[in-house]
């Protein structure tokens, strides 16, 4: 399972970087989204996968923490997803505005501030 997820994470990174380097604006956004997904999935995978055992302490009982899934990476991934969502929403608005102002979605046209 870990191997499969590792391949998925790697493909997401590769796809994200490839899309960022394309010339079309909307592909840039897709690339950034893929990169964000790749890191979220990586956080989740890297801390070890344990299926079907949530870290819930039974009433009055105790819990062997090695036998249950670590809840912290899940919390991290959730936080990162929320942040990524907000940032991506802004980036989409920015891309739409760029298209309106520049009149093109070709990144090679967007260089009036370059030096």
């Amino acid at each position: 399972m870990i191997l499969l997820l590792a391949i998925v994470v790697g493909s997401l990174y590769a796809g994200g970087l490839y899309m960022i380097m394309r010339r079309v604006l909307i592909k840039l956004i897709i690339g950034l989204a893929l990169l964000a997904h790749a890191s979220n999935l990586l956080i989740f995978t890297a801390s070890g996968l344990i299926r079907g055992r949530a870290a819930l302490v039974p009433a009055g009982g105790s819990l062997d923490f090695r036998q249950v899934a670590d809840p912290l990476p899940q919390a991290l991934a959730l936080t990162a997803i929320v942040i990524g969502f907000g940032v991506l929403a802004f980036a989409l608005a920015l891309v739409q505005r760029t298209y309106q102002v520049v009149g093109s979605d070709d990144l090679d046209q967007i260089r009036s501030t370059d030096t």
Binding site: G16, L32, L35, A36, A38, S39, N40, L42, I43, A46, S47, G48, L72, P73, L76, A80, V87
Partner: peptide, 13 residues
């Protein structure tokens, strides 16, 4: 930022 997040996740693991 996504590199930073990756590094933070790996540090935790």
């Amino acid at each position: 930022s996504s590199l930073f997040l990756t590094a933070a996740g790996l540090l935790y693991s």
